[in-house]
Write a protein that binds this DNA or RNA. Structure first.
Length: 398
DNA sequence: GCTAGATGCAGCAGTCGTGG
DNA sequence: CCACGACTGCTGCATCTAGC
């Protein structure tokens, strides 16, 4: 956790960041590994476009090892394997990450390989993404979902990561449609649709399946039959799917993220359940505060204070750091994020303490550099940046 | 001293089955 | 519906080793 000088390193700040993912990418069906998804989210912090209009992300192996808190000497070979096209087929690589995306014009499903090139040399991981993703990644300021990197990185299951992004995206949209009101929103998914989204089943290039998926209301019973006939289906017993995928992921999300989720089987005509209804809300910030006050002992508070002080002294006085820690109820994520915002602030900061406190109070959610004082509250505008035409198209799609 | 490769072990994730 | 377990493959981690 600490380098030889006893200082906290910048990956701690990195973990406190958010990442943006375009809703189209979130809603795509496809298969990937948790590691590939995490690398993608981390790489978003340091992306560029190369001369051939491909997005390239570069990450140092040492940093990655720290972000993943993996001290294993087997870490580097793992990354190398991820980049190796020639490894055995059962070993997942970055190149196995495929997405099925609906073309906006003709609504045809297009299969895309997400990563076109990856290498791990000289302790640097370089990932080059398919050109079709360039606008998705670089122009994600419209119609995107803001996701917390630290929440995502601590999720172990790949299903949990996909479900987290899917439900957070759906929640933000519902919230925007309802005048930015925090509430409990319900989302229904057919089981087969979830299997595709989570990459549990694939179309295997089957024409009938692809045709159905292109429709506005696919015949999921037909798709399921084809999957069964060809032995491609998984979780043929609905209860097993609910138990091993839905329940497991929802438990993980409830315990590790800001989402609060309850589920209910979706039954049709009183017959056996055909899917799941998710009731999603954001955990109450007030409750969080109270929990934090209760859950941090004096020793834990001292520990957090020490960690924050190591990072921020001598730029800030100890008295200021104590003041901020107490103001944030020792919520390390909020504290680091707030100090980072002030660090990124381009204009004059007359009263940094006031700015930090405001960031903590509003749980400020935008990690991009702030251009002017008036934009300080612009996290609220996040939901106003949605492209109306896109949204309409998506609503028609569903 | 630092970085990285090899190996073995424990535990976990994903999938599926059984029995109550 | 639930609890539990079997099985497979992967992950995390400690330890030892080797090269620079």
């Amino acid at each position: 956790m600490k380098n030889k000088n006893g200082k906290k390193e910048k990956y701690e700040i990195l973990r406190a960041r958010d990442y943006k993912k375009s809703n189209e990418l979130i809603n795509a069906r496809g298969k990937s590994t948790p590691l590939a998804q995490k690398l993608f989210a981390i790489g978003l912090q340091n992306k560029r476009i190369d001369e051939t209009n491909h997005v390239v992300m570069e990450m140092s192996g040492t940093e990655l090892q720290k972000i993943f808190n993996n001290k294993s000497h087997n870490f580097y070979p793992q990354i190398e394997k991820l980049c190796d096209r020639t490894v055995a087929k059962e070993h997942a690589t970055l190149f196995d990450w495929n997405l099925l995306i609906k073309n906006k014009e003709d609504k045809k499903l297009e299969a895309h390989q997400v990563v076109t090139d990856a290498s791990f040399k000289n302790n640097t991981l370089v990932i080059r993404y398919n050109e079709f993703l360039t606008p998705q990644i670089m122009r994600a300021e419209k119609n995107y979902t803001l996701l917390a990197l630290n929440e995502m990185l601590c999720l172990k299951s790949g299903h949990s990561i996909t479900l987290y992004e899917t439900l957070k995206s759906a929640y933000d949209r519902a919230k925007w449609e309802n005048g930015n009101k925090d509430d409990i929103y319900a989302f229904r998914f057919r089981r087969t649709e979830l299997k595709f989204r989570l990459g549990i089943v694939e179309s295997h290039g089957n024409r009938i399946i692809k045709n159905e998926l292109e429709k506005d209301n696919p015949d999921y019973a037909l798709i399921e039959n084809i999957l069964d006939e060809n032995g491609w289906n998984k979780y043929t017993v609905p209860g097993n799917f609910n138990r091993d995928v839905i329940k497991k992921s929802v438990n993980e999300l409830n315990s590790k993220t800001s989402l609060s989720i309850e589920t209910e089987p979706w039954t049709m005509d009183g017959k056996n359940d055909i899917g799941t209804t998710f009731y999603v809300s954001m955990k109450d910030k007030k409750d969080d505060k109270n929990e934090n006050v209760k859950s941090y002992s004096k020793e834990e508070k001292d520990q957090i204070l020490n960690e924050v002080a190591e990072l921020l002294m001598p730029s800030y006085k100890l008295s200021q750091i104590i003041e901020i820690c107490e103001y944030a109820n020792f919520d390390k994520r909020k504290i680091l994020k707030a100090f980072e915002i002030v660090g990124n602030y381009k204009g004059d900061v007359n009263e940094p303490m006031a700015l930090i406190k405001a960031a903590i109070r509003d749980d400020y959610n935008e990690s991009a550099p702030i251009k002017g004082k008036n934009s300080f509250n612009n996290f609220k505008q996040t939901y106003n940046n949605i492209d109306f035409e896109e949204l309409e198209n998506q609503l028609l799609d569903n």
